[in-house]
């Protein structure tokens, strides 16, 4: 079994409003799956359905190869989660909150709590009641709670909300470490594309409750993102040279000043040389790539036609 999460035509309707519609997704073991979507796309609802908190109105969910039914509790032992802003027992201290969590999870390993707090860089606050915590500290504590039982699957909803830039960077490397060192599978949602771009192995794009695309980051990088842009005052000459002399076919003329090459059959040095020798007035050559942002906007604007 390589898939940890699998949903088939999963739907949720609240009072005739479709929140999630026919989502069929797959999350493989050991990967970081980035859930991307604008606010209100149904990310949180979908995650709550995976935790059995919200019951689907259609379709089905499989976790660790077993079907999730209304009373199913077994798979929850293997899942750590943080949905929306994490909630705690405010009057209890950070440590007591985590102790309670471990008790309910049936997880007993000495040192687990201390280790988790270390991992999220929360030190010296074990005995402070949670109500005194700042937003960022709560977020970190929420992550600590999710990871302290060393779950196989980690479901995190907007985990970097409220963190400072340094915190974001630390958290990002923590996620990578959890995945690489402990073999955890991570499902992370965010509306911040740049973040997802940096850590996810696979992304699923959700918009208005529909899964528009599920694709590996690698194939996005490979297939659509890179091109070399030549800025020139004579695009026609440039095109002729590319075609006839250099044997490059996959390019596109963009406006009056630029030519984009999507597939390079020669090295960049040869390209330079070829253009100069054929008197193409080149003002600049840049290697660019479509960011995930462009890709994402394409998808959500095009209504899934991309």
């Amino acid at each position: 079994m390589t898939e940890i999460i699998r949903t088939r035509l999963l739907s949720k309707t609240y009072d005739k409003a479709d929140v999630v519609t026919n989502v069929s997704m797959k999350v493989g073991r050991g990967e970081i799956y980035g859930f991307l979507g604008p606010n209100g796309a149904g990310k949180s609802t979908l995650m709550k359905m995976l935790l059995n908190l919200v019951k689907p109105t259609g379709g089905e969910i499989e976790l660790f190869g077993e079907r999730l039914l209304p009373g199913t509790i077994e798979p929850l032992k293997r899942i750590g989660h943080m949905i929306e802003a994490p909630v705690f027992y405010e009057k209890l201290t950070a440590e007591q909150n985590l102790e309670l969590h471990c008790e309910y999870m049936g997880y007993h390993r000495p040192g687990a709590i201390k280790e988790a707090l270390e991992m999220v860089q929360l030190r010296g606050i074990e005995n402070k009641p949670v109500k005194q915590f700042s937003l960022g500290m709560r977020q970190r504590l929420g992550i600590a709670r999710a990871i302290c039982t060393r779950p196989e699957l980690l479901i995190l909803d907007e985990p970097i909300n409220g963190l400072d830039p340094e915190g974001i960077q630390e958290t990002r490397s923590l996620f990578r470490r959890l995945c690489d060192e402990y073999g955890m599978t991570l499902l992370i949602s965010s509306h911040m594309l740049a973040e997802i771009e940096q850590i996810a192995d696979t992304i699923g794009v959700l918009d208005r409750g529909r899964l528009l695309e599920e694709v590996s980051m690698e194939s996005i990088r490979k297939s659509r993102t890179e091109y070399v842009e030549i800025t020139t005052t004579d695009v026609k000459l440039c095109a002729v040279v590319l075609d006839d002399r250099l044997g490059i076919r996959n390019y596109k003329i963009v406006g009056n000043t630029a030519v984009r090459i999507y597939e390079m059959t020669i090295t960049q040095e040869e390209l330079f040389k070829g253009l100069i020798l054929n008197d193409v007035p080149v003002t600049a050559i840049n290697r660019r790539h479509h960011s995930l942002e462009e890709y994402f906007l394409d998808l959500t604007r095009g209504g899934g036609q991309a």
Partner: peptide, 15 residues
């Protein structure tokens, strides 16, 4: 009301 019930209901314990 505090939403801690959601936390409890996500534990591997029967509701």
């Amino acid at each position: 009301q505090n939403k801690t019930m959601a936390l409890l209901f996500a534990y591997p314990v029967s509701r």
